[in-house]
Write a protein that binds this DNA or RNA. Structure first.
Lengths: 404, 404
DNA sequence: CGGATATAGTTCGAACCGAAAACTAATTAC
DNA sequence: GTAATTAGTTTTCGGTTCGAACTATATCCG
């Protein structure tokens, strides 16, 4: 039960009814397609006449398309309805400190084209290069209508206007990125935090049952981000700042974090932390020989995963320590939210056979509730950030209409 | 933007429109009363004719009543509309391990009658005694319509049916409390966790601006509970278990908590923790004399507060330590949710002049965001649990209707 | 006193919507 | 070819908001 926001509501009119029922039908088609009008009446509880009217409207709007005839033991054959996947193309951009990915997706979140580039050094250059690639997308598909652009950020955008972006890992000053991209591409642009995008990706495309109304995504890379979906919707907090559990202190003291505090979760459980652990393991008394110490510094986390996959003891030890701390933070999320699902996103999921059991054990030991939260690595979805940012744009059409 | 739950939705009909607009009007009256129909059209954006029709209906339902005429420089005088506060009486019950409070409240959350009793030793006795007191409420006000009963629990009720209750501090087996109370009183009963109730109390009666859509309540007593309101609505998690941040570990080791783990926030920052700190302070080398040690154990937290108020050094030290840990946990909540407001509920707020600054300093130091979360002691509202449980019942009428 | 003006509130027809029932279309079994 | 069955459309009706016209009430000012 939501409190009505008396500063920001819209009254209902006759069209509101149609809007609501349209979205219900659209979602039913999305879930059950291909589906006949008759089945829609059964699933929705609407009258057959109403379903006819709504589907006629949705066919006219090109949200749906008619397909083949169905087979039945007797009676008239139903005409199947499908989502018109190519009704709208959505461009997703995943902006990360070193690399930027782009994708063009259709209504079902299927990627139609992909591209990537080293993240340019300035926002001007970024806007220029990205909009150029988008133009090449659009040129190849002149018939397609383009719905908008979503950008996944390694940071937070302020909520109402999205004029300023706070992204410490990015060297730029990210002022007015939204407006600049909109000018350059002539498409509406929305910014979103990467962890929130991952949460949306799992929530809309993760193949979970309808029972899942609370889902937490944890992105593990250089830092740790948390995206919260509670009561079936994204939680953004007062100014879009919710989700910084990565900067909750696990210990009173401890290594200094980039945020200025000590002992943050992410200094213990991020990829960078694992690299530190590896170096420590190599330097430990057990590894006596001096020339080993020279190798102690690994270039990146990929390399560590590779070593761990080959059975390198130090790498495995580093991973286990990382997993232990990952579990500690996840236990906090389990206690605090008791969500149906927690999804872990990041390179570390590639070694989930090793990491998962450690994490589960720690969570089981340290979390309070009798909650039955499932902790799972991010599904097969490649590029969860991209897919999530596309989900964010799609929400506008498939989400519940904002009422009262 | 909420995802539509395709297993649990209702399609819209013409009446849906009226339902939505009715609630908007009802809330506008609640906020601005006394208010004329003409002002309602201005605030709502509805047509005058529509407002007339809606208010006529609400007057007929006795949700509203007409009041005096307003004064205007020219033109016909408006007739003021008011909430018909006595339309419905709501019984709130705050069940705590040692004492149970009851109150009868009207639509505006004003208490019309109060009562309390030592919490009985068995659920049977509880139901018997409580329903007897409720009957005495109803007898004194035979004209009043009774809306329902809300019960604030020192624990959690399972979500759909509320058949089982998990309340470790309560010695009972709380099976089917809801159904038993309903049978005994013939009124609908709803159970809710105490921290959630406090959050609702502040959210609906706390006098915050409309901007506050994210509010966290922290109850500090024997344990620590957290109630979450995010996106303007209560967060209950998968099975009503969300909010157990009190059982998040602040340290890897530490004192054993009643939940079985070690180092939980609540073993460091609850009232019981402060009593422990007091005992430690008394036993410390600084307090050499042996006869002091005998006094080291205080009967209860009230007493500690009293001593602190009188300037007792050990008591103040204990409070400061408690405040420090309180701040650590609150920093976690600020980082994680960046809510507009965090409300602290409990006896400790009586010494907020002393505790508040310590808490604020720790939160400022240890929380990540640039968030501007206000941390405040629970407002003047006496009995926030009671008031909150009444808010919970009222929500059904004043909350946004569940659509799609 | 009476007309102009201003504000509050009501009445009535048009348009939109879903519900319900009647109707048309298509298909199979016998 | 007729009955049965299922899909889908058309029609009528009641509920709702909107917008315009209308009534009611009050003040100002000549």
């Amino acid at each position: 039960m939501r409190k009505i926001d008396l500063n920001n509501f819209r009254v209902a009119t006759s069209e509101t009814v149609r809007d609501i029922n349209c979205r219900i039908v659209l979602n039913l088609v999305r879930k059950h397609q291909p589906i006949s009008r008759a089945d829609l009446t059964r699933h929705s509880g609407l009258q057959r006449s109403t379903v006819s009217a709504i589907t006629e409207q949705l066919l006219g709007n090109r949200w749906l398309r008619e397909g083949a005839l169905g087979q039945l033991p007797r009676g008239r054959k139903p005409t199947f309805l499908h989502l018109n996947e190519d009704r709208a193309g959505i461009v997703g951009i995943s902006l990360r400190p070193t690399i930027t990915h782009l994708a063009l997706a259709n209504l079902e979140g299927r990627f139609l084209a992909e591209d990537s580039l080293p993240t340019p050094a300035t926002p001007e250059e970024f806007v220029k290069q990205v909009s150029q690639r988008i133009r090449s997308f659009t040129k190849e598909r002149p018939h397609m209508a383009y719905e908008g652009i979503g950008v996944s950020l390694p940071g937070r955008a302020d909520l109402p206007g999205q004029r300023f972006v706070f992204a410490p890992n990015l060297a730029w000053k990210l002022e007015d990125l939204k407006a600049r991209l909109e000018r350059a591409t002539n498409l509406p642009v929305d910014l979103e935090n990467a962890a929130n995008a991952c949460a949306l990706s799992e929530f809309w495309f993760g193949g979970h049952t309808e029972q899942v109304r609370n889902l937490v995504a944890v992105t593990v890379s250089e830092g740790i981000g948390v995206g919260l979906i509670l009561n079936g919707q994204l939680v953004r907090g007062a100014a879009g700042l919710a989700g910084e559990f990565g900067h909750v202190a696990l210990t009173e003291e401890g290594p200094i974090c980039s945020c200025g505090n000590q002992g943050c979760w992410e200094v213990y459980a991020s990829n960078s932390a694992a690299l530190r652990y590896y170096a420590e393991a190599k330097a430990s008394p057990r590894n006596k020989s001096a020339h080993h110490k020279k190798q102690a510094e690994l270039a990146n986390f990929e390399h560590l995963l590779q070593l761990a996959g080959q059975g390198d003891a130090s790498a495995l030890e580093a991973l286990d320590r990382m997993a232990n701390f990952l579990g500690q933070g996840l236990a906090m999320l389990v206690s605090g939210f008791a969500p149906e699902v927690i999804v872990v996103v990041g390179e570390v999921t590639r070694m989930w056979d090793r990491v998962g059991p450690v994490v589960s054990a720690v969570v089981k030991q340290r979390s309070f509730t009798h909650a039955t939260t499932r902790i799972m690595p991010c599904g097969l979805a490649p590029q969860p950030r991209l897919r999530g940012i596309i989900a964010m744009v799609l929400q506008k059409h498939f989400g519940a209409p904002t009422i009262a």
